[in-house]
């Protein structure tokens, strides 16, 4: 009896604190947003690093012959199998042992960048290998060297075919940037931690705010990649079925809009 009479007021007060919490979170929002800029910097750094090394790894795997191809496969195997956090710690605590100073940011960028390169290499390898062999034959038959053929014919096509895969990789690594929390620089999650360490009651709202930041970033990133895909679109050079799906989803959303409009009439 006593318990149930207490339950109603306590629920009320919980709702009250949630509203209060949001108000109390406001002063920390600028520093959280500033910290998320560091995540974006880290993201750009690791994606770029991953792109360069991923392309290289893919090229070596496909065209590198036995020795270089094996080196590339071992590289890819290592960075795809070691857990991200373990990599992060290795890159952060490892270099100082050899007298090389490394910042948390640099350690995170290299660890996550190399890791991403291993994944990106497989996106790219798939794209390269899906290009018909006749393209290489035609290029060689007109007197192009292998290198010329790779750079003028194969890569421009493979690049276009790998955009959908990259969109996926982007959505994945953007969240990995919070792992940098573990090597102690003030990215967004660590900043959130500092907030709720001192204001324990804000823990839920600050974490939800961080979640919202990443939801927005992912949405923006996907829109950007969609734009890149449209910008470089060439008839006959898209991932099979990709265009179709997009087309049909648009039609169905249109019909939903129509249905709604008819409903309101």
């Amino acid at each position: 009896m006593a318990g149930s009479s207490l339950a109603v007021p306590s629920q009320l007060s919980e709702q009250e604190t949630l509203i209060q919490n949001i108000a109390r979170l406001a002063p920390f929002i600028p520093s959280l947003l500033r910290a998320s800029l560091i995540n974006i910097q880290l993201l750009i750094g690791l994606i770029a690093l991953g792109y360069v090394f991923g392309t290289l790894t893919a090229l070596l795997q496909v065209y590198g012959g036995k020795i270089l191809g094996t080196v590339a496969r071992i590289y890819e195997w290592i960075f795809r199998s070691v857990p991200a956090l373990v990599l992060l710690f290795l890159f952060y605590y490892g270099p100082p042992r050899f007298g090389i100073g490394i910042s948390g940011f640099a350690a995170a960028m290299f660890a996550l960048g190399f890791r991403s390169s291993a994944y990106q290499s497989q996106i790219f390898r798939g794209a390269i290998q899906s290009i018909p062999s006749g393209q290489m034959l035609a290029a060689r038959s007109m007197g192009m060297s292998r290198i010329q053929a790779i750079f003028s014919i194969i890569l421009p096509q493979a690049f276009r075919l790998s955009i959908p895969g990259w969109t996926n990789e982007f959505s994945s690594v953007i969240k990995d940037t919070t792992l940098a929390y573990a090597v102690g620089f003030n990215e967004v999650l660590r900043t959130a931690r500092i907030v709720y360490d001192t204001h324990y009651d804000l823990a839920m709202s600050v974490l939800i705010f961080v979640a919202l930041i990443f939801m927005v970033l992912t949405l923006a990133g996907n829109a950007l990649m969609g734009g890149v895909e449209r910008r470089f679109r060439i008839p006959g050079l898209q991932v099979p079925g990709h265009e179709k799906t997009r087309q049909s989803s648009r039609t169905s959303s249109d019909s939903w809009g129509l249905r709604l409009r008819n409903f309101w009439r």
């Binding site: 018909p132 006749g134 393209q135 034959l137 035609a138 290029a139 060689r140 038959s141 007109m142 007197g143 192009m144 060297s145 014919i153 421009p156 096509q157 276009r160 060439i234 006959g236 050079l237």
Partner: peptide, 20 residues
Amino acid sequence: INKIRAQIGFVFQSFNLFAH
């Protein structure tokens, strides 16, 4: 070989035009 191939045209059964 590349210089020689540049002097010999090759037309394929499956065209092999560069798709991009």
